[in-house]
């Protein structure tokens, strides 16, 4: 998704308020933006804490700063700067983290972001965007530009199945009809799971939804999702994020408060490093049972 992100940024870079800061990352990806934005593309160096506060300073003066890095370096390293300088002041700084979840695979745990949106959504005024497919990036960037609050864009890899037609972009989308449980997937993991489900007959598969914007607010739950949940009475949430602070926790709380909790709830989420070994993104997904095969097998029990 990094390339489509860069292409989209280039289109917006002629806005005189546009400023792009990178923590010395983006080699072989962001050069077109560097060229297009000129002096408004700033390599802030390997100094994420400073970069976030500088972005806050810029935003306080009406500029529109984006701050980019590998995901954990944009939210975990400078967390206090995000909290105090950006979120407490409700400034429209746009944090961009590349490689959400286990995206950096065998690069190791330091480069993984399996606790990112949970941590960030504990902060005041924060909004999170987790594009699921390449095509989601441009409309999400449009929303980010208009948003007058802090935001975090979690970029992953595009896993849209071949010959699968996506519905137009929306924060909640019904991707696949099915007679089974109501399965809500967060972000790009949807592609991987769709791949395993799309050829199955509707009677043998869950009803698959994808969610790309957080936090979840009860009155924004689509009526069709609520109706689907009422039908299945079984909510399944799959996300490449740890349980704490994840969408499973968020959504179950909202449904419980509203008295709309389904009879059954299943949660598939990042389990950390189960075997203690490291591998590709898919290796870690498998260890966390975040595959279509495992989910299907378990749901059939």
């Amino acid at each position: 998704m990094r390339n489509i992100f860069c292409e989209t940024m280039v289109k917006h870079s002629d806005d005189s308020n546009f400023i792009f800061l990178t923590g010395d990352l983006g080699y072989m990806a962001l050069e077109p933006l560097q060229k297009a934005a000129g002096p408004r593309f700033i390599n802030a160096g390997v100094s994420e804490q400073n970069m976030i506060s500088v972005a806050a300073g810029l935003a306080s003066q009406g500029l529109s700063p984006w701050a980019y890095s590998i995901a954990p370096f944009i939210y975990a390293r400078p967390l206090e700067q995000v909290r105090n300088d950006v979120c407490i002041h409700d400034l429209p700084v746009k944090l961009v983290g590349n490689g959400g979840g286990y995206g950096y695979g065998v690069m190791g745990a330091s480069h993984h972001a399996i606790d990112d949106y949970g941590i960030l959504l504990t902060l005041l005024n924060m909004h999170v965007f987790v594009p699921a497919f390449r095509a989601d990036v441009p409309p999400i960037v449009e929303r980010l530009i208009k948003l007058e609050h802090p935001s975090y864009l979690r970029l992953g890899k595009d896993e849209q199945p071949k010959n699968f037609e996506l519905p137009p972009y929306a924060s909640w989308r019904h991707l696949l009809k099915g007679d089974g449980p109501t399965l809500l997937i967060v972000g790009p993991l949807a592609g991987e799971i769709l791949n395993g489900f799309k050829e199955l007959p509707p009677s043998d598969r869950p009803s698959v939804w994808v969610l790309t914007e957080l936090p979840i607010v009860h009155h924004h739950l689509p009526a069709a999702f609520k109706a689907d949940l009422e039908r299945s009475n079984h909510l399944v949430v799959a996300e490449e994020h740890v349980a704490h602070g994840g969408v499973g926790e968020m959504l179950s709380r909202i449904l419980l408060l509203a008295g709309e909790a389904p009879k059954k709830f299943s949660h598939y989420c990042a389990q950390g490093y189960v075997s203690g070994f490291y591998g590709s993104q898919n290796f870690h997904r498998k260890e966390s049972n975040l595959t279509a095969e495992t989910i299907l097998k378990e749901l059939k029990k």
Binding site: I19, N50, S53, V54, G57, L58, L63, N84, D85
Partner: peptide, 25 residues
Amino acid sequence: IIFATGSLGHGFSLASGLALAKRFK
């Protein structure tokens, strides 16, 4: 009071952002 402060080590970066904003604007 453009920024609330209290945790040390933030102000000089914030001030750098303000100075950079003056340049761009």
